[in-house]
Write a protein that binds this DNA or RNA. Structure first.
Lengths: 244, 244
DNA sequence: TAATACAGAATATTCGAATGTGTAAACAAA
DNA sequence: TTTGTTTACACATTCGAATATTCTGTATTA
């Protein structure tokens, strides 16, 4: 359930602070740390077996990308999940990714298109679910991310790419929390295929349109489910507590 | 030169970490901490008379907004200043602020327009320079920021407003570092006036066009000066060291 | 000469303990 | 009961010291 790896940092993190940052981000995006949940230093110390120093550094980094809320003298909590916020994320992604895609077209060459195709093929071979009604598979999440990254990779704007990454994490979180088993794999993959083909043909306008529509479509069931959830329970499922 | 206030936090910061964060951001944006400069914990400890803990927390926050570069086990440095980066900031601002302004038009009412007018009037009364050939006055910077904030304040998108704030800080830094005494006060204020008037009249398209042009125009002399600087000195003025 | 190895200094990272701040329960007064 | 006050506890913040890593200059070797 929770990511119970011990500090001996497995991958490329060279400090505890970076290691626990990656871990916290993943756990928040995956939903293992619930929206609105209070992040006590003591509980996190136990969960990740690190001291407060690297924890606080990681939490502050996450607060800058709005996945964590920090308030002076009152600690940290996981960013809440609201309909308005999801709508904001979706709409911002549509705008930003369109801008970035145009930028990518301006600077991308054949290698760019080849990388997209490779990422698409890899994604195609990766199943979205490992069990029925289970969570979205980690492997698919990675491949999906890589595909969209490849699509935008030719863009030069560091700033917009930075924003895109932030928005992506938020969108992924909503997918995982609200609609673990709600996505239509075939439909998504068809959209990826069409986007790949259109980019290969060099049709900027159509590609932007498709990307935008892809974001809308993929988010639609998530948004609907969230609206239903929020409508029903006032506080029942301790999933998300609103502002005090 | 440097901001030598002692920790007894003057304004609203309730922790040393937040206080030193504000201070560092201001000093980086003002150029008191030079681009590319190494930010040793020891030197910062002395400069601000705080321990390493709040310092590191503040530095990590700044690294998320790209004003500071952090590298594991190698500490922190002020983000370098480059022509490509400035161009990216300008172009991103044009795109993002246009989006946000459209959003503001969708949701803003008379109170919004009134707030813009008030901020404009305040800015009009604030002189940009206190001495000839000196730095841009703090008061003008604040009033200028407030005016542009007012223009965008009716927008609902938290995400885009967050991005806008980040970009603004970067743009302000380039203004301060590259072209302290280069801006044409009268021209800028004329553009502010025209923008205010156009928004009052409710002309969305024209307002977006003007805002975009304002960003371009205001940045132009800064960009030119930077290109000249970079062209001349390889390393002479220890102002900016490029990547290793 | 160039490349490598090493010692010592400089620096970054992390922990545990001390301090300060907010919060909720217990109590007192109205 | 309601309102305000105190107190005790939980928690966040911060420091100084201990540890680990990187950097710099010097010596060694091919």
């Amino acid at each position: 359930m929770s990511s119970t790896a011990t500090p001996p940092f497995g991958e490329d993190a060279k400090t505890l602070a970076s290691w626990v940052y990656d871990r916290l981000r993943d756990d928040i995006v995956a939903g293992s740390l619930a929206p609105g949940q209070k992040l006590t230093l003591d509980s996190l110390k136990e969960r990740y077996t690190v001291g407060v120093t690297p924890l606080r550094e990681a939490l502050y980094r996450l607060s800058s990308s709005l996945l964590v809320e920090a308030e002076d003298q009152r600690g940290f909590r996981v960013a809440p999940v609201t309909v308005a916020h999801l709508q904001d994320i979706i709409s911002s992604r549509e705008h930003i990714e369109t801008l970035v895609l145009r930028d990518a077209f301006r600077h991308g060459g054949e290698d760019w298109k080849a990388a997209i195709f490779a990422a698409f093929k890899l994604l195609e071979r990766t199943p979205m679910y490992e069990m029925d009604n289970g969570p979205i598979s980690r492997a698919w999440e990675t491949a999906h991310r890589r595909f969209h990254q490849a699509v935008l990779s030719a863009a030069r704007s560091k700033a917009l790419l930075h924003f895109q990454t932030m928005l992506w994490d938020h969108a992924a979180r909503y997918r995982n929390i609200v609609a673990p088993a709600l996505l239509d794999e075939a439909e998504l993959q068809a959209e990826h295929a069409e986007l790949t083909r259109t980019i290969e043909q060099g049709d900027v306008e159509m590609a932007c349109l498709l990307l935008r529509r892809h974001i809308t479509n993929a988010a639609a069931p998530v948004l609907e489910a969230l609206i239903r959830q929020k409508g029903q329970k006032g506080k029942s499922s301790g999933m998300s507590f609103e502002r005090i």
